[in-house]
Structures are given as structure tokens and as C-alpha cells.
């Protein structure tokens, strides 16, 4: 337990070290999630466009 507190306290610098690691975690995980979300959305959109595509040009009318 003592070892855990020691790590958490960061030698008195906890208020600087932990928020910085938190910011990096939020940045990296957030970037990954946003990327995955837009990729999935576009894949769905693209699949839909393919399905609705008229088999031959000129059918649109």
C-alpha cells in the first residue's frame, strides 16, 4: 500500500505529473476513438452509396 501512495505522490509533484499524463491519455485515446468513429461512419456511407447505385448509368432518371 505504501508503495502505491509513494507512486501517487510523485515526490510532492503529483499535481503536475498526473494531470500531464492524463492529458496525454485523453489526447491519444480521444484521437483513436474519433478516427475509428469517422472511419466506421464513412464505411457505412460508402456501403450505402454502393447499394443505391443504379446498375447502369442513365437509370437515375
Amino acid at each position: 500500500m505504501d508503495a502505491v501512495t509513494k507512486v501517487l505522490e510523485m515526490g510532492g509533484y503529483a499535481m503536475w505529473v498526473w494531470p500531464a499524463y492524463g492529458a496525454v491519455a485523453v489526447g491519444l485515446i480521444g484521437l483513436l476513438l474519433i478516427t475509428l468513429r469517422s472511419l466506421k461512419a464513412r464505411e457505412r456511407e460508402f456501403a450505402a452509396v454502393r447499394r443505391n447505385r443504379p446498375p447502369a448509368p442513365g437509370d437515375a432518371a
Binding site: 505522490e9 515526490g11 510532492g12 509533484y13 503529483a14 499535481m15 503536475w16
Partner: peptide, 12 residues
């Protein structure tokens, strides 16, 4: 320095 200077008080 134990505890650091006043600008960095340990968060407990």
C-alpha cells in the same frame, strides 16, 4: 527537499 517548495505542495 522533502515536500518541495511552496509552489508544489503535495496533493494528498
Amino acid at each position: 527537499q522533502e515536500g518541495g517548495a511552496p509552489s508544489a505542495t503535495p496533493a494528498k
